[in-house]
Simulated assay, not measured.
Amino acid sequence: MMKLEHNRQSVLQQIRIAEQNAQRVSGSVNLIAVSKTFPAADIRQLYQHGQRDFGENYIQEWQEKTIQLMDCNEIQWHIIGHVQSNKTRAVAEHAHWLHTLDRAKIAERLHEQRPDSLPPLNICIEINIANERTKHGIQPDELLPLARTVLSLSKLRLRGLMCVAQANATETELRQQFNRMAELLRQLQTIAPNADTLSMGMSGDMNVAIECGATMVRVGTAIFGKR
């Protein structure tokens, strides 16, 4: 179990170095530990060492973990997988963040199902930045119309953008994709000035993502190991 915390500290050190290299403020990049397919016991171990943000992809698996970890009441759950219409209620009722919004219908359902007792659900709109058929997300020219829908829903809080970069991209291609995401965030801020989040970068490409402005990196393998 101690290896998990050792791995997390190594990732945090890598983030700090990347921040320095990019001349960014220390602590400006938040680590989301991607815990999908790993047991609740692993999450609990990292929680006990101070990790609070955890990313999950699969709604049913995540729901089971929320029950097992009910006593870890400072956890921030980030849903980073595609959400189908029939799974929105669980997200609305128990998640803190959704990173993968790509349809107005999903936004409207989340708004309707978000309990009045909870603060607005933090939302990132997913951009299919490399225009890959196998990935979810919207095209850049669809951003502002969808953003306007989210802004009209009081139980949602539009925080920014998310992407999954092309898996086999060169460093030059990664930089182009991540820089484009930063441009799109600036475009979004023309109608949503409080949007402050770029969720991009994973175990293999987070250094480039941080260089290009990522504020959240989603790291699984480098912390938990291979699935």
Rank of each mutant, 00 (worst) to 15 (best):
K105H: 11
E93N: 11
W77C: 08
Q60G: 07
S152L: 11
E126W: 04
L110T: 08
Y58K: 12
I80M: 01
Q84D: 01
Q60Y: 13
A22G: 03
M70N: 14
G50E: 02
F54V: 07
R148Y: 00
E61D: 15
A104C: 00
Q84G: 07
N128E: 04
H111D: 06
Y47C: 07
Q76Y: 10
Q76K: 15
N122W: 05
S35K: 10
Q84S: 07
H82C: 06
D102R: 09
Q68F: 07
I106G: 00
N131C: 02
S28R: 07
E132L: 12
E126P: 09
T100N: 06
Y47V: 12
S85P: 07
Q63N: 14
A40I: 14
I123Y: 00
D102W: 12
A92L: 05
H78E: 00
I138D: 00
Q139C: 05
Q139A: 08
L110P: 13
A33E: 02
K36Y: 10
I79P: 09
H111L: 05
Q63R: 14
G27S: 07
C124W: 14
V83H: 01
A104W: 04
H96S: 06
N86M: 02
A33Q: 09
A104K: 13
S117I: 12
H82F: 14
I67E: 00
L144V: 02
A40F: 12
L144K: 03
K36F: 02
E56A: 08
R133M: 09
R103G: 04
T134I: 15
H99D: 05
R148M: 12
A90M: 04
Q63P: 07
D102E: 15
E126V: 09
K65I: 06
Q139H: 07
V91K: 02
T37N: 14
D71W: 12
L69N: 06
S26G: 01
K135D: 01
P120R: 06
R52M: 10
P120N: 02
I123P: 00
Q20V: 09
I138K: 03
H49D: 03
A147C: 04
G55A: 04
Q20K: 15
V91T: 01
S35I: 15
A33R: 13
T66V: 08
D116P: 06
A130E: 07
Q68W: 08
D116Q: 08
R24F: 13
D71F: 08
R103H: 12
N128R: 01
L69W: 14
L143I: 13
I80Y: 02
E142R: 06
E61Y: 12
K105Y: 08
H49E: 05
L101P: 02
W97F: 11
V150M: 08
R24D: 03
K135L: 02
W77Y: 15
